[in-house]
């Protein structure tokens, strides 16, 4: 038996620059908020815009989280993800319309239970649809990116057209439940109640997701699977089953995002998911494909920037996101928090 080699622990001298570089993605949000404050000038409008930016960011994050995890786990890129957003919105809004008495009443309890039921219905339907989608559309083309993109785009078209068949070709207008209408005023800034609720739901979901990924065994398997799939399988876990579960959960979350977005816009169309996909992709790319935290930061950045720019120069709102993406890809070509794959 040979002696253990000499062990000389060294403490790396991490300079301030390196520390900053590591923390930079997390610092971007406060920096953007402060910059927004100076660019806008009026504190009350700034507060209103910040809240609506956060609300929008949270909703985009809810839609993007599933997509990015699915990619991280199985290298599957799902261009049909937007279809779940649309389906979720249509199912949820149908439930809300059916529960018209509840949403019209001035009771917070009845209002919230109607929204809750709508969300449950939407998530159930999109989750089930996600399962079918995975079996029928995605499964035969594992490992072939080109075919995945083509086939999932085909799936997106078919589902969108089916929405037209079931709900008719017209857009549907929807009123928010009675108690979620209007705004509360705080320090001279009007903040819509619904946006505050959206921020709350988004924050709770993010924390819950982080807890599941960091503290539970299933989260451990998912994270390990993202990093090194074959190794996890070698240890005896059936990654396929985990993957299908993540796919279903991601689809259900897209459905939830669809309901929330529909209530936010107060109008839903079959093409809404397709349009949201643009933002979802931007978020997934700048966050780093496969990274939930990255998607969270990216979504908040996109939401805040879009609202600030829409206030300052309305025509440049969507272009600002492309500019953000370009800037971040120049700074970090793999996205802000890239997933390190052990290969």
């Amino acid at each position: 038996m040979t002696a253990a080699p000499d062990h000389r622990p060294t403490f790396a001298d991490v300079s301030l620059g390196e520390r900053l570089d590591k923390a930079m993605p997390f610092l971007l949000i406060p920096i953007l908020v402060v910059l927004g404050f100076f660019a806008i000038g009026a504190p009350s409008s700034w507060l209103t815009l910040t809240v609506s930016g956060l609300a929008m960011g949270m909703m985009i994050f809810i839609m993007a989280s599933g997509l990015t995890l699915v990619f991280g786990l199985m290298d599957v890129i799902n261009f049909g993800h937007g279809a779940f957003v649309s389906v979720g919105a249509f199912v949820g809004v149908s439930v809300l319309i059916a529960l018209g008495d509840w949403t019209g009443a001035t009771s917070l309890l009845l209002n919230m239970s109607a929204v809750f039921l709508a969300v449950v219905a939407a998530m159930t339907v999109t989750g089930a649809l996600g399962w079918v989608f995975e079996r029928v559309i995605v499964k035969p083309v594992y490992g072939a990116h080109l075919k995945q993109i083509l086939v999932t785009v085909g799936g997106l078209i078919v589902i969108e057209q089916l929405i037209h068949v079931i709900w008719g070709p017209d857009e549907i207008f929807i009123n928010r439940p009675e108690m979620l209408k209007g705004a509360i005023t705080f320090a001279g800034a009007a903040m819509e109640k619904y946006r505050l609720l959206a921020v709350g739901i988004g924050a709770v979901l993010f924390i819950a997701m982080r807890m599941i990924l960091r503290r539970t065994k299933i989260g451990l398997i998912v994270r390990a699977g993202v990093e090194n799939g074959p190794m996890v399988e070698a240890l005896g876990y059936r990654l396929r089953v985990v993957f299908v579960g993540v796919f279903i959960a991601g689809s259900a979350l897209a459905g939830l995002g669809g309901v929330m977005w529909g209530l936010y816009q107060e109008v839903i169309t079959a093409g809404m998911g397709e349009r949201m996909m643009v933002l979802v992709f931007i978020v997934a790319i700048i966050g780093g494909l496969g990274s939930v935290e990255g998607a969270f930061i990216g979504a908040l950045l996109v939401g805040l920037l879009q609202n600030y720019v829409a206030f300052l120069e309305p025509k440049l709102a969507l272009v600002s996101n492309i500019a953000l993406m370009t800037a971040i890809l120049m700074w970090r070509p793999q996205g802000m928090l890239p997933v390190v794959k052990a290969k």
């Binding site: 993109i149 643009v278 931007i282 969507l318 492309i322 993406m325």
Partner: peptide
């Protein structure tokens, strides 16, 4: 490329 072209084209 697929995702970025989609974003740029819609913009």
């Amino acid at each position: 490329f697929a995702m970025i072209t989609l974003a740029v084209a819609s913009a």
